[in-house]
Design a protein around this nucleic acid. Structure first.
Ligand SMILES: [Zn+2]
Ligand SMILES: [Zn+2]
Ligand SMILES: [Zn+2]
Ligand SMILES: [Zn+2]
Lengths: 130, 130
DNA sequence: ATTTAAATTGTTATAATATAACACCATGTA
DNA sequence: TACATGGTGTTATATTATAACAATTTAAAT
């Protein structure tokens, strides 16, 4: 499983912060929040983020330039992600639908090409905002 | 149809440039290319880009911070987009699969929520790069 | 134990992407 | 006319992300 990596100090500090956050966090907000723990420069944050994304502990929400912890236990392939995003409150939820991931993993374009990696972002209004 | 808008001067200049480009263009590359036509500041570019995205003439490739012209004649709903992206040569193609758009438009999350707006980016290697 | 390679860290500086604020202009329309 | 709407031009600034380099830690491999 991809989540058994031992994290380094910086990676752990930054993962813990993102994991506790109820909403996606932006890099410079992360930086601000971990400065008291000795992480002082953007690059330290971005390096940890890169690694955490690579090993699947967090995902980047591309349309928001923000990061959330992976809470999808079936998300073994870190590179196949789907999210719903509320356009009012900006709440983001990872979608763990087996049907969806199966459909997308098997999707072939008109040249017959299959893709094992994808990112899907749905937009709408969450329950609370409707 | 969403593509019948009359473009303003700046919008037309910038759309023409993107439309001619074989690959997605980044904002500051656009700026550099239209400076000889009198568009001098980033904001002028971003304002035109925002409008062009809004009316569906171009799309933003979120993972690349780049813009391509819409070449999908069935893409009436500018807000439901799908692309394939080659991770080597960065070639981007808009996917116009009716099956895919139907599947995604009808997709319900576990709370039964449907989304009319989405962006999907597939990653892989294009024909040439395999 | 000693050497070596790989990964991580710390640091300063800088690049790349995007928006705020404000004055002005063009166009349509009541 | 007067008013509303949207577009423009401009300067300044905010936000997001990487380059370059030296030092340190970690985990094998000899
Ligand atoms: Zn996940
Ligand atoms: Zn909401
Ligand atoms: Zn399109
Ligand atoms: Zn390619």
């Amino acid at each position: 499983m991809h989540k058994e990596h031992i994290l380094t100090k910086n990676q752990q500090i930054i993962f813990d912060l993102i994991d506790k956050s109820p909403e996606p966090m932006k890099a410079y907000s992360i930086l601000f929040n971990v400065q008291k723990k000795g992480i002082k420069a953007p690059l330290q944050v971005y390096r940890a983020l890169d690694k955490l994304v690579e090993i699947g502990k967090i995902h980047k929400i591309e349309s928001r330039n923000a990061f959330i912890a992976c809470h999808n236990s079936s998300c073994r392939v870190a590179k196949a992600t789907a999210f719903s995003i509320c356009e009012i409150c900006e709440k983001v939820t990872e979608i763990g639908s087996a049907g969806l991931s199966k459909y997308l993993a098997n999707f072939k374009d008109k040249d017959g090409m299959k893709y094992s990696k994808y990112n899907l972002e749905f937009f709408g209004l969450c329950k609370k905002c409707r």
